[in-house]
Write a protein that binds this DNA or RNA. Structure first.
Lengths: 359, 359
DNA sequence: ACGCTATTCCGAAACGTTTCGGGAAGTCAA
DNA sequence: TTGACTTCCCGAAACGTTTCGGAATAGCGT
C-alpha cells in the first residue's frame, strides 16, 4: 500500500502516480512535481517484489560457488563478486549466491535456481570442457555467461587465454635456458586446466623439446606439494616447473624447500593468478595476472545485453593475462648446478617487485 | 498462471488447489491426491515472487562484502558464505551478496537493502566497536546478526574470543621464555582488532612484563611486512611477534627473512585464522583456527530464530579458537642468540603439522 | 454549433499466491 | 422436521505494481 497512499493523499489515481514517477509524458508537469514531492515526503520506494511479479522477472542473477575439500579460500570468486556487485546493483539486479560441492549437488542447485524462477540469469565459473551446467542452462533457455570456454561453445563466455599465457611462460623458461620444463596442472576436464596445459605442450613442441613430465590434481597447496615431490623425485629432474595456479605453485615452492633446492636458481617456478600470497611466498612468485575485474566487467556486459534481449551465442571474448615477474624463476643451472645463461637481463626479472618495495 | 492452471484442468478452485498443496486438513484425501498428481505432471513450482508479495516478506538475507585495497582475497568471507549457503537454501532463503568499500558507501548499501525491502535480515561482518551499520539496522528494526561484538551490544552476535586466544598465545610465548613480545595488530576500532590486542596486553600485565611495542594497520601482507620492519628496527628488538591475522603474519615472516632472522628460532611468530596459506608460508605458521563454519552455523540459528519472531537482543555466543602449532614459534633465544629454554617439549610444537605430512 | 486534436487523467485487469469468511451437502440426534 | 455439526469446497480480497484502452476537458479552426 504505497502508491495508493500517495494517490489518496493527493486525490489522484494510482495509475497517474505510477506514471508520474515512471517519467511518462502523459502527466502534467505540475502534477508530476506534486507527486514527486509527496513521494519524497513519505519516503516512498517502489516495492521491488510487486514490480517483479507484475513484470514476470526476478531481477536477480545467480552464481554458485564451489565448496568442498581444497576449494576454500579461492580468492578468485571473491574478486569476481567484488567486481560484479556494484555494477549489478547499478542495473537494479540482485546477486544471489549459493554454494555446493561440484557434481550432482551442484547441478541440482542450478535446477533449483531455474525451476523456482529465482534468477533471470546465471554466472557460471569453473567451466568444464563438457559442462552439464552449461548444457542444462542452454536447454532451459536461461541467459548465462561463463568464465571459461566449453568445447561446444555457442554461449556467452569470457575467458583468459591460458594457452597463450602458458605458451609464453614456457618460452620464457626456454629463453632462460631451461630444457626440462615440468608441468603441474589442474584436471584437464576443467577448461582452464586444458588450455593451460595446451600452451605448455605447444611451446615445448615448437622448440623441439621433448615433452617433460606432467601431473594433474585439484589446485590446492597440498596437491602442488605432493605433485612437485613426484616430479622432483623422478629421473631427469626438471629445472623448471610450470604451475597451473598459484596455489599449486605455493605447494611446489615448499616441495623445493624440502628437497633443498633454491627456487629461481636450482629450479624455476611460474604460477598463475597473481594472488595476494604470490608476492609473499617463500620466494616471491613469478605469476600471471588475469585481470579478473576486467573480465568480470565484460561478463556483466554480456549478461545485461542478454537480459535486454540479445542472443548470447555469439558473445565471446578471449582476454590476455600479463606476466608479473618476481624471483621464483631465472636462468637454468648448468650440469654442475651453476647458473648457465644470462641471456635475459636482470632488469627483466623486475627486482622492484620485491615485497618491501611494493608496501 | 499456474495454480489456476491446475485448478481449471481439474475443475477445482484455485483456493482448493492451494490448500491441497499447502497440506491443509480441509481438503479430501482423494482431491489432494489428484492435485498432487497434476502438479507433478505439469511440473508445478510455486512462484516465489507471488508468495513473497502476498506474505510481505522477501525471503532473502543480505551480506555486504568489504571491497577495497588490501581487502581482496579474504578467505574468511568465502568460508562464511560457503557455510551459510546450504542452510539458507534449506530454509528457503536467498543469500543476496553485494560489495562496497568500508565507510559511507557501505552504509549506503545497507540503507538500500533495507529501504528497498530487498532482504528480511542481514549478516554483518567486520564489526566495529562503534558500528554505524549496527546502529542503523537496530534503528530500522531489521533482524540481523553480527560476526563480532560491538561495544554497546544488545543485538544478536557470534564472536570468537580473540582476547582469550591472544592471551593464551602470549602465555605460550612467555612459557617459551620470550620476554619482549611485540604485537602487530589490526585497527582497534574493529572489534577483532581491539579484543585481540586486549588479550596480548593483559597476558603481558599478568606476567609482570613491560608492554612491548605494537603497531596497527589494515590486515594485509604488505602492512604486516612494513610494521614488522618497524618493530624489528627499533631498540630492544622483540624476540616474538604476535600477529592479529595470518596475512599480517605472512608479511611479518617476510620481514624476518629480509633481516636474516629465522622464524621460530630468532624470532617467534604466531598468527590467527589458520588460513590455507599458513601451512605453506615460508615457515609453516603457528596459528589459531577460528572454526568459521561452526560460527556461521550459530549465526544462522540466531537469524532464523529472529525471523521466527524471537528477540535477538539476548542472543550472544562467544566461541573459542584452537591453537594449531606449526614451526614459526619456539623457545626464545638467549642473549647470544642461542636457544634459551626447553621448558616446552618438542612434541607440543607438533611437528606433524609439516606440509608434507598433511598432504 | 460542431468536429478535431492534444492534453491529462483514470478504471480495471493482470501478475500468482494465501487466507478470510463463509456455503453447500451430508450426517446425526432429538 | 429441525437444528447442529462435519466435511469439503469456493469466492473474493489482498499484496503493490504496471499498462491497456479509453474518457473527460479544453483549445482551436471552420
Amino acid at each position: 500500500m504505497s502508491l495508493s497512499k500517495i494517490a489518496t493523499s493527493l486525490g489522484l489515481s494510482v495509475t497517474t502516480v505510477s506514471r508520474a514517477l515512471g517519467g511518462y509524458s502523459d502527466v502534467a508537469e505540475e502534477t508530476r512535481r506534486r507527486v514527486e514531492a509527496e513521494a519524497r515526503r513519505i519516503g516512498y520506494r517502489a516495492n521491488p517484489i510487486a514490480r517483479r511479479l507484475r513484470g514476470g522477472r526476478s531481477d536477480a542473477v545467480g552464481i554458485v560457488l564451489p565448496t568442498g575439500p581444497g576449494q576454500f579460500g579461492e580468492p578468485f570468486f571473491l574478486r569476481l563478486i567484488g567486481a560484479i556487485g556494484p555494477r549489478l546493483a547499478e542495473a537494479g539486479l540482485d546477486l544471489i549466491v549459493s554454494s555446493a560441492r561440484s557434481g550432482s549437488e551442484e547441478l541440482a542447485l542450478y535446477r533449483q535456481f531455474v525451476e523456482n524462477r529465482r534468477v533471470d540469469a546465471m554466472i557460471v565459473a569453473r567451466t568444464r570442457l563438457e559442462d552439464d551446467r552449461v548444457a542444462y542452462l542452454t536447454h532451459a533457455r536461461l541467459p548465462f555467461v561463463t568464465h571459461g570456454r566449453t568445447r561446444a561453445g555457442g554461449h556467452a563466455s569470457v575467458d583468459i587465454d591460458g594457452t597463450r599465457a602458458f605458451h609464453e611462460a614456457t618460452q620464457r623458461l626456454i629463453a632462460f635456458g631451461h630444457r626440462r620444463i615440468g608441468f603441474i596442472g589442474a584436471p584437464l576436464d576443467y577448461g582452464f586446466g586444458f588450455f593451460r596445459e595446451a600452451g605448455w605442450r605447444s611451446a615445448l613442441a615448437e622448440a623441439g623439446l621433448p615433452c617433460a613430465p606432467a601431473r594433474f590434481a585439484e589446485p590446492s597447496e597440498e596437491n602442488g606439494h605432493r605433485l612437485a615431490h613426484e616430479l622432483l623425485a623422478g629421473p631427469d629432474r626438471p629445472t623448471a616447473l610450470l604451475c597451473a595456479t598459484d596455489r599449486l605453485a605455493i605447494g611446489t615452492l615448499h616441495a623445493l624447500g624440502d628437497a633443498g633446492l633454491r627456487p629461481g636458481h636450482d629450479v624455476s617456478v611460474i604460477g598463475y593468478d597473481n594472488s595476494p600470497v604470490s608476492n609473499y611466498a617463500a620466494t616471491p612468485l613469478t605469476s600471471y595476472d588475469p585481470d579478473i575485474e576486467g573480465a568480470a566487467g565484460r561478463m556483466l556486459d554480456m549478461l545485461l545485453a542478454q537480459l535486454a534481449g540479445q542472443d548470447g551465442a555469439a558473445m565471446n571474448e578471449l582476454r590476455g593475462a600479463t606476466l608479473v615477474p618476481r624471483r621464483s624463476d631465472g636462468p637454468a643451472p648448468d650440469r654442475n648446478g651453476q647458473i648457465k645463461s644470462r641471456a635475459i637481463s636482470r632488469e627483466e626479472r623486475s627486482d622492484d617487485e620485491r615485497p618491501h618495495d611494493t608496501a
